[in-house]
């Protein structure tokens, strides 16, 4: 059985492209591009399998390798964020030369084998595929090699379980669920915390930044509307400073005396503290 015209054409179209993609894997620097090259080679291989009367193998190649394995690779690449080109500095001395030498040796061996091979027509393909390709394959796998299949299956299950066991960690505290979080928030009410989210920082005519507190309904600045980290670092700006800066700006616009330097000084991080809240003494 020799290759038909269509099959030959398919091969000579696909094979050079696959070789190109495969060598692209060697030279391309971006990891995701390389992954796409691998994907192309895999799909090309699958097409060649189908063309050579092995449709099951071809389709499984795509489902398993391209659909699952390469997808996982890509998944990891994206998550790790291998974005920039890898560093090309050698970690082992002379690694490049050793690699080239071994590569050349492999090429020599392969070339000599291919050069001595003779291509005879395929034998027995039709007989094998008479009961359809997947059925014939199933008979081989589950009759002739059933023990090997079982062993491989057990091995894979063991490996999966081992992975689970190795990555398993015992839970130290109780499981935190939405319910427990909600309960904790309600319980924290006693300590003076609020149920609702904290108020957002203030928005003023000239200033809309995280470091300026919002004004409460009573007109007093709400300290906790500024993120805690900024407060600890002392990078909080007082509302009075912002308002004063705005006033100076208005004055400057209307031909007032103040200058830019003064403006930046008043708006600085160390503004005057907010006035004391009017105490309860005035009210009886």
């Amino acid at each position: 059985m020799t290759a038909s015209g269509g099959e030959t054409l398919l091969f000579w179209v696909l094979a050079p492209l696959m070789v190109l993609a495969a060598s692209g894997l060697l030279v391309i620097r971006r990891a995701v591009h390389a992954a796409i090259c691998v994907m192309f080679v895999m799909v090309g291989l699958a097409i060649l399998y189908v063309a050579q009367e092995a449709p099951f193998l071809g389709v499984v190649q795509v489902v398993v390798y391209t659909g699952a394995v390469m997808m996982l690779f890509l998944f990891v690449l994206m998550l790790v964020g291998v974005d920039a080109a890898d560093s090309l500095t050698e970690t082992i001395r002379g690694q490049r030369w050793i690699g080239l030498l071994l590569g050349a040796g492999l090429a020599a061996v392969l070339l000599s084998v291919i050069g001595r091979a003779t291509f005879r027509p395929a034998v027995g393909l039709e007989a094998e595929n008479a009961v359809t390709n997947p059925v014939a394959l199933a008979r081989v796998l589950f009759e002739d090699y059933v023990v090997a299949m079982q062993v491989v299956g057990v091995l894979l299950v063991t490996a999966a379980l081992a992975g689970l066991v190795l990555t398993h960690r015992r839970r130290l505290g109780p499981r935190v669920t939405q319910r427990t979080v909600a309960r904790a928030r309600v319980a924290a009410l006693v300590e003076g915390r609020t149920l609702t989210p904290l108020p957002a920082p203030g928005v003023y005519a000239q200033n809309n930044a995280m470091d300026t507190p919002a004004l409460g309904p009573d007109g007093q600045p709400l300290e906790h509307s500024v993120p805690r980290v900024l407060r600890i670092r002392g990078q909080e700006r007082s509302a009075t400073a912002v308002l004063a800066a705005e006033e100076t700006l208005v004055e400057r616009r209307t031909g007032g005396r103040s200058e830019l330097a003064e403006l930046s000084r008043t708006a600085g991080t160390s503004g005057p503290p907010a006035p004391e809240t009017p105490g309860g003494e005035e009210h009886r």
Partner: peptide
């Protein structure tokens, strides 16, 4: 062909690449 439904699964598996690569790129 004898593995037509598997071929459908294969096409679906490849189609995800569009989404994944689109999001990444």
């Amino acid at each position: 062909f004898p593995v037509a439904v598997l071929y459908i699964l294969a096409c679906a598996a490849l189609g995800v690449y569009g989404i994944v690569l689109g999001g990444w790129s």
